[in-house]
Write a protein that binds this DNA or RNA. Structure first.
Ligand SMILES: [Zn+2]
Ligand SMILES: [Zn+2]
Ligand SMILES: [Zn+2]
Ligand SMILES: [Zn+2]
Lengths: 175, 175
DNA sequence: GGTGGATATGTTATAACATATCAATAGTGG
DNA sequence: CCACTATTGATATGTTATAACATATCCACC
Protein backbone atom coordinates (compact mmCIF):
# COMPACT_ATOMS: atom_id res chain seq x y z
CA UNK A 1 0.00 0.00 0.00
CA UNK A 2 1.60 3.30 -0.95
CA UNK A 3 1.01 6.20 1.36
CA UNK A 4 1.62 9.91 1.27
CA UNK A 5 4.38 11.47 3.39
CA UNK A 6 3.35 12.36 6.91
CA UNK A 7 3.33 15.71 8.64
CA UNK A 8 4.81 16.06 12.07
CA UNK A 9 2.93 18.74 13.94
CA UNK A 10 5.89 19.23 16.27
CA UNK A 11 8.27 20.16 13.45
CA UNK A 12 6.60 21.10 10.22
CA UNK A 13 5.01 24.49 10.87
CA UNK A 14 1.41 24.59 9.85
CA UNK A 15 -0.09 27.54 8.11
CA UNK A 16 -1.95 29.84 10.48
CA UNK A 17 -5.34 28.73 9.29
CA UNK A 18 -4.47 25.05 9.53
CA UNK A 19 -3.10 25.57 13.02
CA UNK A 20 -6.21 27.33 14.15
CA UNK A 21 -8.40 24.67 12.55
CA UNK A 22 -6.52 22.14 14.60
CA UNK A 23 -6.92 24.19 17.75
CA UNK A 24 -10.60 24.55 17.12
CA UNK A 25 -10.98 20.83 16.54
CA UNK A 26 -9.07 20.02 19.72
CA UNK A 27 -11.15 22.44 21.73
CA UNK A 28 -14.29 20.95 20.28
CA UNK A 29 -13.09 17.46 21.15
CA UNK A 30 -12.36 18.48 24.73
CA UNK A 31 -15.79 19.98 25.05
CA UNK A 32 -17.45 16.97 23.48
CA UNK A 33 -15.69 14.61 25.87
CA UNK A 34 -16.46 16.73 28.89
CA UNK A 35 -20.12 16.72 27.90
CA UNK A 36 -20.09 12.93 27.72
CA UNK A 37 -18.15 12.31 30.91
CA UNK A 38 -15.17 11.02 28.92
CA UNK A 39 -11.65 12.02 29.83
CA UNK A 40 -9.74 13.79 27.07
CA UNK A 41 -6.30 13.00 28.44
CA UNK A 42 -2.96 14.25 27.20
CA UNK A 43 -2.21 11.00 25.41
CA UNK A 44 -5.51 11.12 23.57
CA UNK A 45 -5.08 14.74 22.74
CA UNK A 46 -1.60 14.12 21.32
CA UNK A 47 -2.89 11.36 19.07
CA UNK A 48 -5.79 13.43 17.81
CA UNK A 49 -3.50 16.40 17.23
CA UNK A 50 -1.19 14.28 15.09
CA UNK A 51 -4.09 13.04 13.00
CA UNK A 52 -5.44 16.56 12.60
CA UNK A 53 -2.08 17.72 11.28
CA UNK A 54 -2.29 15.41 8.27
CA UNK A 55 -4.73 17.47 6.23
CA UNK A 56 -6.91 14.74 4.81
CA UNK A 57 -4.22 12.08 4.64
CA UNK A 58 -5.07 9.20 6.96
CA UNK A 59 -2.28 7.60 8.98
CA UNK A 60 -1.72 3.98 9.82
CA UNK A 61 -1.41 3.14 13.49
CA UNK A 62 2.33 2.61 13.15
CA UNK A 63 2.93 5.83 11.27
CA UNK A 64 1.07 7.50 14.10
CA UNK A 65 3.21 5.63 16.60
CA UNK A 66 6.40 6.90 14.97
CA UNK A 67 5.17 10.47 15.19
CA UNK A 68 3.92 10.02 18.72
CA UNK A 69 7.32 8.72 19.79
CA UNK A 70 8.89 12.08 19.00
CA UNK A 71 6.86 13.51 21.86
CA UNK A 72 6.62 10.37 23.95
CA UNK A 73 9.56 8.07 23.28
CA UNK A 74 8.22 5.17 25.32
CA UNK A 75 4.99 4.87 23.34
CA UNK A 76 4.07 1.34 22.30
CA UNK A 77 1.43 -0.08 19.96
CA UNK A 78 -1.20 -0.33 22.71
CA UNK A 79 -0.64 3.34 23.46
CA UNK A 80 -1.89 4.37 20.07
CA UNK A 81 -4.51 1.67 19.68
CA UNK A 82 -6.07 2.62 23.01
CA UNK A 83 -6.15 6.27 22.09
CA UNK A 84 -7.65 5.39 18.72
CA UNK A 85 -10.29 3.20 20.34
CA UNK A 86 -11.25 6.01 22.64
CA UNK A 87 -11.36 8.56 19.87
CA UNK A 88 -13.42 6.25 17.67
CA UNK A 89 -15.87 5.45 20.48
CA UNK A 90 -16.35 9.18 20.85
CA UNK A 91 -16.72 9.69 17.10
CA UNK A 92 -13.68 11.91 16.91
CA UNK A 93 -11.77 9.59 14.60
CA UNK A 94 -12.75 7.12 11.91
CA UNK A 95 -11.00 3.99 10.82
CA UNK A 96 -10.70 3.47 7.08
CA UNK A 97 -11.11 -0.27 6.65
CA UNK A 98 -9.86 -0.49 3.11
CA UNK A 99 -6.50 1.05 3.98
CA UNK A 100 -6.10 0.18 7.68
CA UNK A 101 -5.73 3.81 8.50
CA UNK A 102 -7.22 6.49 10.69
CA UNK A 103 -8.61 9.93 10.03
CA UNK A 104 -10.13 12.59 12.28
CA UNK A 105 -13.87 12.99 11.89
CA UNK A 106 -14.49 16.27 10.16
CA UNK A 107 -18.06 16.53 11.47
CA UNK A 108 -19.06 18.93 8.74
CA UNK A 109 -22.18 16.83 9.02
CA UNK A 110 -22.90 17.21 12.73
CA UNK A 111 -23.74 20.89 12.84
CA UNK A 112 -27.40 20.22 13.46
CA UNK A 113 -29.63 17.36 14.44
CA UNK A 114 -30.08 14.54 11.94
CA UNK A 115 -33.59 13.20 11.78
CA UNK A 116 -32.37 10.19 9.85
CA UNK A 117 -30.41 8.77 12.75
CA UNK A 118 -26.81 8.26 13.70
CA UNK A 119 -23.68 9.53 12.01
CA UNK A 120 -23.25 7.54 8.82
CA UNK A 121 -20.16 8.85 7.09
CA UNK A 122 -19.03 8.35 3.56
CA UNK A 123 -15.44 8.58 2.41
CA UNK A 124 -14.03 9.43 -0.97
CA UNK A 125 -10.51 8.04 -1.23
CA UNK A 126 -7.99 8.87 -3.90
CA UNK A 127 -6.06 5.77 -4.91
CA UNK A 128 -3.29 7.88 -6.36
CA UNK A 129 -2.42 10.47 -3.70
CA UNK A 130 -4.25 9.07 -0.68
CA UNK A 131 -6.41 12.11 -0.10
CA UNK A 132 -9.44 11.05 1.89
CA UNK A 133 -12.47 13.23 2.10
CA UNK A 134 -15.35 12.66 4.49
CA UNK A 135 -18.64 13.79 3.09
CA UNK A 136 -22.18 13.53 4.44
CA UNK A 137 -24.03 10.51 3.20
CA UNK A 138 -26.91 11.81 1.17
CA UNK A 139 -30.26 11.10 2.80
CA UNK A 140 -31.78 9.68 -0.34
CA UNK A 141 -28.79 7.38 -0.70
CA UNK A 142 -29.03 6.37 2.92
CA UNK A 143 -32.65 5.51 2.53
CA UNK A 144 -32.04 3.63 -0.69
CA UNK A 145 -29.31 1.54 0.93
CA UNK A 146 -31.38 0.78 4.03
CA UNK A 147 -34.39 -0.06 1.97
CA UNK A 148 -32.60 -2.24 -0.52
CA UNK A 149 -30.95 -4.19 2.28
CA UNK A 150 -34.35 -4.64 3.86
CA UNK A 151 -35.66 -6.10 0.62
CA UNK A 152 -33.11 -8.86 1.19
CA UNK A 153 -34.20 -9.17 4.82
CA UNK A 154 -31.14 -7.42 6.24
CA UNK A 155 -31.24 -4.61 8.76
CA UNK A 156 -28.11 -2.56 8.12
CA UNK A 157 -26.48 0.07 10.27
CA UNK A 158 -24.37 3.12 9.88
CA UNK A 159 -20.93 1.81 8.97
CA UNK A 160 -18.93 4.15 6.80
CA UNK A 161 -19.06 3.75 3.04
CA UNK A 162 -15.67 3.81 1.35
CA UNK A 163 -15.57 4.80 -2.29
CA UNK A 164 -12.25 4.64 -4.13
CA UNK A 165 -11.16 6.55 -7.15
CA UNK A 166 -9.30 9.69 -8.13
CA UNK A 167 -9.49 13.06 -6.43
CA UNK A 168 -10.00 16.23 -8.46
CA UNK A 169 -6.28 17.03 -8.49
CA UNK A 170 -5.21 13.58 -9.60
CA UNK A 171 -7.92 13.43 -12.25
CA UNK A 172 -6.54 16.60 -13.76
CA UNK A 173 -2.98 15.30 -13.78
CA UNK A 174 -3.99 11.92 -15.04
CA UNK A 175 -4.93 13.25 -18.47
CA UNK B 1 -13.76 -10.51 15.39
CA UNK B 2 -15.92 -13.58 16.01
CA UNK B 3 -16.31 -15.97 13.15
CA UNK B 4 -18.59 -18.84 12.36
CA UNK B 5 -17.35 -22.44 12.39
CA UNK B 6 -15.88 -23.62 9.12
CA UNK B 7 -16.94 -26.46 6.89
CA UNK B 8 -14.38 -28.88 5.61
CA UNK B 9 -15.46 -30.11 2.19
CA UNK B 10 -13.30 -33.20 2.58
CA UNK B 11 -15.10 -34.38 5.70
CA UNK B 12 -18.45 -32.73 6.31
CA UNK B 13 -20.71 -34.23 3.65
CA UNK B 14 -22.58 -31.56 1.76
CA UNK B 15 -26.17 -31.92 0.80
CA UNK B 16 -26.63 -33.11 -2.79
CA UNK B 17 -27.76 -29.71 -3.99
CA UNK B 18 -24.89 -27.90 -2.29
CA UNK B 19 -22.42 -30.38 -3.74
CA UNK B 20 -23.76 -29.94 -7.24
CA UNK B 21 -23.78 -26.16 -6.82
CA UNK B 22 -20.12 -26.42 -5.97
CA UNK B 23 -19.44 -28.63 -8.96
CA UNK B 24 -21.23 -26.22 -11.23
CA UNK B 25 -19.29 -23.30 -9.85
CA UNK B 26 -16.00 -25.14 -10.27
CA UNK B 27 -16.85 -26.10 -13.82
CA UNK B 28 -17.81 -22.52 -14.57
CA UNK B 29 -14.54 -21.30 -13.09
CA UNK B 30 -12.54 -23.72 -15.22
CA UNK B 31 -14.35 -22.59 -18.32
CA UNK B 32 -13.95 -18.93 -17.43
CA UNK B 33 -10.19 -19.36 -16.93
CA UNK B 34 -9.76 -21.34 -20.12
CA UNK B 35 -11.54 -18.59 -22.00
CA UNK B 36 -9.13 -16.01 -20.58
CA UNK B 37 -5.94 -18.01 -21.05
CA UNK B 38 -5.55 -18.42 -17.30
CA UNK B 39 -4.55 -21.75 -15.78
CA UNK B 40 -7.03 -23.16 -13.31
CA UNK B 41 -4.52 -25.37 -11.54
CA UNK B 42 -5.19 -27.97 -8.86
CA UNK B 43 -4.02 -25.64 -6.08
CA UNK B 44 -6.36 -22.90 -7.24
CA UNK B 45 -9.21 -25.31 -7.65
CA UNK B 46 -8.73 -26.66 -4.13
CA UNK B 47 -8.82 -23.19 -2.65
CA UNK B 48 -11.94 -22.22 -4.55
CA UNK B 49 -13.61 -25.51 -3.60
CA UNK B 50 -12.99 -24.85 0.08
CA UNK B 51 -14.47 -21.38 -0.17
CA UNK B 52 -17.48 -22.69 -2.05
CA UNK B 53 -18.14 -25.20 0.71
CA UNK B 54 -18.74 -22.47 3.29
CA UNK B 55 -22.24 -21.53 2.22
CA UNK B 56 -22.07 -17.77 2.57
CA UNK B 57 -19.58 -17.70 5.43
CA UNK B 58 -16.36 -16.02 4.34
CA UNK B 59 -13.05 -17.49 5.50
CA UNK B 60 -9.91 -15.72 6.58
CA UNK B 61 -6.75 -16.66 4.75
CA UNK B 62 -5.50 -18.65 7.73
CA UNK B 63 -8.76 -20.52 8.25
CA UNK B 64 -8.50 -21.41 4.60
CA UNK B 65 -4.90 -22.48 5.12
CA UNK B 66 -5.89 -24.82 7.94
CA UNK B 67 -8.49 -26.48 5.74
CA UNK B 68 -6.16 -26.63 2.78
CA UNK B 69 -3.53 -28.39 4.88
CA UNK B 70 -5.82 -31.37 5.35
CA UNK B 71 -5.44 -32.02 1.63
CA UNK B 72 -1.99 -30.53 1.21
CA UNK B 73 -0.03 -30.66 4.47
CA UNK B 74 2.87 -28.58 3.20
CA UNK B 75 0.74 -25.56 2.32
CA UNK B 76 2.06 -22.23 3.56
CA UNK B 77 0.63 -18.71 3.72
CA UNK B 78 1.92 -17.82 0.25
CA UNK B 79 0.15 -20.89 -1.12
CA UNK B 80 -3.24 -19.53 -0.18
CA UNK B 81 -2.49 -15.88 -0.84
CA UNK B 82 -1.30 -16.71 -4.34
CA UNK B 83 -4.38 -18.73 -5.06
CA UNK B 84 -6.57 -15.96 -3.66
CA UNK B 85 -4.79 -13.35 -5.77
CA UNK B 86 -5.36 -15.41 -8.86
CA UNK B 87 -9.00 -16.06 -8.04
CA UNK B 88 -9.59 -12.38 -7.27
CA UNK B 89 -7.89 -11.24 -10.47
CA UNK B 90 -10.26 -13.52 -12.31
CA UNK B 91 -13.27 -12.28 -10.34
CA UNK B 92 -13.96 -15.69 -8.91
CA UNK B 93 -13.41 -14.59 -5.31
CA UNK B 94 -13.94 -11.35 -3.43
CA UNK B 95 -12.08 -10.00 -0.47
CA UNK B 96 -14.21 -8.55 2.34
CA UNK B 97 -12.16 -5.64 3.62
CA UNK B 98 -14.04 -5.08 6.83
CA UNK B 99 -13.40 -8.62 8.04
CA UNK B 100 -10.18 -9.59 6.24
CA UNK B 101 -11.92 -12.54 4.72
CA UNK B 102 -12.65 -14.11 1.38
CA UNK B 103 -15.81 -15.28 -0.32
CA UNK B 104 -16.48 -16.85 -3.72
CA UNK B 105 -18.17 -14.53 -6.17
CA UNK B 106 -21.72 -15.72 -6.63
CA UNK B 107 -22.10 -13.99 -10.00
CA UNK B 108 -25.86 -13.97 -9.71
CA UNK B 109 -25.25 -10.63 -11.32
CA UNK B 110 -23.19 -11.70 -14.29
CA UNK B 111 -25.82 -13.66 -16.21
CA UNK B 112 -26.09 -11.02 -18.90
CA UNK B 113 -24.23 -8.01 -20.09
CA UNK B 114 -24.25 -4.95 -17.87
CA UNK B 115 -24.57 -1.69 -19.73
CA UNK B 116 -23.54 0.21 -16.63
CA UNK B 117 -20.00 -1.12 -16.67
CA UNK B 118 -17.90 -3.45 -14.62
CA UNK B 119 -18.87 -5.80 -11.84
CA UNK B 120 -19.62 -3.64 -8.79
CA UNK B 121 -20.68 -5.96 -6.03
CA UNK B 122 -22.43 -5.14 -2.80
CA UNK B 123 -22.24 -7.26 0.32
CA UNK B 124 -24.68 -7.56 3.18
CA UNK B 125 -22.85 -8.85 6.24
CA UNK B 126 -24.44 -10.14 9.41
CA UNK B 127 -22.48 -8.96 12.44
CA UNK B 128 -23.98 -11.70 14.57
CA UNK B 129 -23.59 -14.93 12.57
CA UNK B 130 -21.19 -13.84 9.86
CA UNK B 131 -23.48 -14.66 6.95
CA UNK B 132 -22.35 -12.65 3.95
CA UNK B 133 -24.59 -12.22 0.98
CA UNK B 134 -23.48 -10.77 -2.34
CA UNK B 135 -26.22 -8.89 -4.10
CA UNK B 136 -26.24 -6.88 -7.31
CA UNK B 137 -25.67 -3.20 -6.74
CA UNK B 138 -28.82 -1.53 -7.86
CA UNK B 139 -28.30 0.60 -10.97
CA UNK B 140 -29.99 3.64 -9.50
CA UNK B 141 -27.80 3.34 -6.45
CA UNK B 142 -24.72 2.95 -8.58
CA UNK B 143 -25.57 6.04 -10.53
CA UNK B 144 -26.35 8.01 -7.40
CA UNK B 145 -23.00 7.07 -5.85
CA UNK B 146 -21.04 7.87 -8.98
CA UNK B 147 -22.86 11.11 -9.46
CA UNK B 148 -22.59 12.28 -5.87
CA UNK B 149 -18.86 11.54 -5.86
CA UNK B 150 -18.54 13.53 -9.06
CA UNK B 151 -20.23 16.48 -7.37
CA UNK B 152 -17.23 16.49 -5.04
CA UNK B 153 -14.87 16.19 -8.00
CA UNK B 154 -14.06 12.52 -7.42
CA UNK B 155 -14.21 9.84 -10.07
CA UNK B 156 -15.00 6.62 -8.22
CA UNK B 157 -14.72 3.04 -9.37
CA UNK B 158 -16.34 -0.27 -8.73
CA UNK B 159 -15.01 -1.33 -5.35
CA UNK B 160 -17.40 -3.49 -3.39
CA UNK B 161 -19.77 -1.85 -0.93
CA UNK B 162 -19.90 -3.53 2.48
CA UNK B 163 -23.02 -3.00 4.55
CA UNK B 164 -23.14 -4.43 8.06
CA UNK B 165 -26.14 -5.38 10.11
CA UNK B 166 -28.30 -8.37 10.94
CA UNK B 167 -29.38 -11.12 8.57
CA UNK B 168 -33.02 -12.22 8.46
CA UNK B 169 -32.43 -15.17 10.78
CA UNK B 170 -30.57 -13.15 13.38
CA UNK B 171 -33.13 -10.36 13.25
CA UNK B 172 -35.83 -12.89 14.11
CA UNK B 173 -33.86 -14.34 17.02
CA UNK B 174 -32.83 -10.96 18.27
CA UNK B 175 -36.39 -10.04 19.33
C1' DG C 1 -6.34 12.86 54.37
C1' DG C 2 -7.02 7.80 53.89
C1' DT C 3 -9.45 4.05 51.30
C1' DG C 4 -11.34 1.77 47.43
C1' DG C 5 -13.41 1.30 42.92
C1' DA C 6 -13.10 2.76 38.26
C1' DT C 7 -10.44 4.34 34.54
C1' DA C 8 -6.15 4.96 32.21
C1' DT C 9 -1.38 3.86 31.15
C1' DG C 10 3.05 1.10 31.02
C1' DT C 11 5.23 -3.08 29.56
C1' DT C 12 6.00 -7.38 27.47
C1' DA C 13 4.65 -10.70 24.54
C1' DT C 14 2.00 -12.66 20.93
C1' DA C 15 -1.84 -13.17 17.65
C1' DA C 16 -3.51 -12.33 13.09
C1' DC C 17 -2.87 -10.84 8.45
C1' DA C 18 0.16 -10.40 4.37
C1' DT C 19 4.39 -10.20 1.36
C1' DA C 20 9.52 -10.67 -0.27
C1' DT C 21 12.85 -13.61 -2.00
C1' DC C 22 14.93 -17.21 -4.30
C1' DA C 23 15.27 -21.94 -5.77
C1' DA C 24 12.90 -25.77 -7.96
C1' DT C 25 9.54 -27.45 -11.14
C1' DA C 26 6.18 -27.87 -14.62
C1' DG C 27 3.76 -26.47 -18.64
C1' DT C 28 4.40 -24.25 -23.66
C1' DG C 29 5.97 -23.25 -28.11
C1' DG C 30 9.88 -23.74 -31.32
C1' DC D 1 15.07 -31.53 -26.76
C1' DC D 2 15.64 -26.53 -25.52
C1' DA D 3 14.65 -22.11 -23.94
C1' DC D 4 11.08 -19.52 -21.94
C1' DT D 5 7.55 -18.37 -18.68
C1' DA D 6 4.26 -19.33 -15.13
C1' DT D 7 3.65 -21.67 -11.08
C1' DT D 8 4.86 -23.74 -6.76
C1' DG D 9 7.87 -24.75 -2.60
C1' DA D 10 10.29 -23.07 1.19
C1' DT D 11 11.99 -19.78 4.39
C1' DA D 12 11.94 -15.53 6.31
C1' DT D 13 10.08 -11.22 7.27
C1' DG D 14 6.95 -7.27 7.33
C1' DT D 15 2.61 -5.17 8.98
C1' DT D 16 -1.49 -4.61 11.77
C1' DA D 17 -3.73 -5.44 16.13
C1' DT D 18 -4.62 -7.45 20.76
C1' DA D 19 -3.85 -10.26 25.19
C1' DA D 20 -2.29 -10.19 29.69
C1' DC D 21 -0.81 -8.28 33.69
C1' DA D 22 1.26 -4.61 36.50
C1' DT D 23 1.07 0.18 37.90
C1' DA D 24 -0.57 4.77 38.17
C1' DT D 25 -4.11 8.31 38.43
C1' DC D 26 -8.60 10.15 39.35
C1' DC D 27 -12.47 10.79 42.15
C1' DA D 28 -16.16 9.91 45.45
C1' DC D 29 -16.82 8.90 49.99
C1' DC D 30 -15.90 8.45 54.80
ZN1 LIG E 1 -17.38 11.69 10.83
ZN1 LIG F 1 -5.39 12.30 -5.55
ZN1 LIG G 1 -19.15 -10.99 -7.47
ZN1 LIG H 1 -27.03 -13.58 11.12
Amino acid sequence: MSRAPVTDPGQAPLSDSAASDTERALAHAAEHCEAHGARFTAARRRVLAILLAQQGQPLTAYQLLDLLREQQPGAQPPTVYRALDFLMRNELVHRIESTNSYLPCNHQHCGHHHPEGEHWPQFLLCDRCGETREVPLDNALRQALTRQARDYGFEVGARPLELHGLCPGCRAEHE
